[in-house]
């Protein structure tokens, strides 16, 4: 009995640690210039490993270890096409500025290239087609 109760509890925790219905805030928009920015590390995919480390330290707390978001925290699920369809420049701008009213902090204090490393890593979280 305790075993089954434990299993149900565990399943509900796992289910809570996801945000399948995440929709981006339409008023949180980067300028055209910011949207068009290219990732300077695009030709260095190996830099994504550093992005993974930064993600675990700074982001996993809200976005979950695997980046699938958390319903309770309204945090973005990076597996979803609504996030992945956005340009590198937009994701970089969102990480830099945050959206304080909806719970996403600004990470402008991380060095610029480290924020681009995070974008590289977020791209790796894209759902397989």
């Amino acid at each position: 009995m305790t075993f089954w109760a434990g299993l149900v509890c565990l399943a509900s925790v796992v289910a809570a640690a996801q945000n399948p219905g995440y929709q981006p805030d339409t008023s949180w928009r980067a300028s055209e210039v910011a949207t068009a920015r290219q990732n300077p590390l695009a030709s260095r995919p190996e830099a994504a490993a550093g992005g993974r480390k930064l993600f675990a330290k700074n982001c996993a707390e809200c976005h979950g270890k695997n980046g699938s978001g958390m319903e309770k925290k309204h945090s973005a699920n990076f597996h979803l096409p609504v996030v992945q369809e956005q340009s590198d420049g937009t994701l970089f701008w969102k990480i830099t500025n945050g959206n304080a009213n909806r719970g996403m902090p600004s990470f402008s204090k991380l060095p610029e290239l480290q924020r681009w490393q995070l974008v590289l890593y977020i791209r790796q979280l894209r759902e397989p087609e």
């Binding site: 490993a49 550093g50 992005g51 480390k53 060095p111 610029e112 480290q114 490393q117």
Partner: peptide, 11 residues
Amino acid sequence: RPLARLASCAE
């Protein structure tokens, strides 16, 4: 300025 711009993959 930080002494290194990129994060390494290892701890």
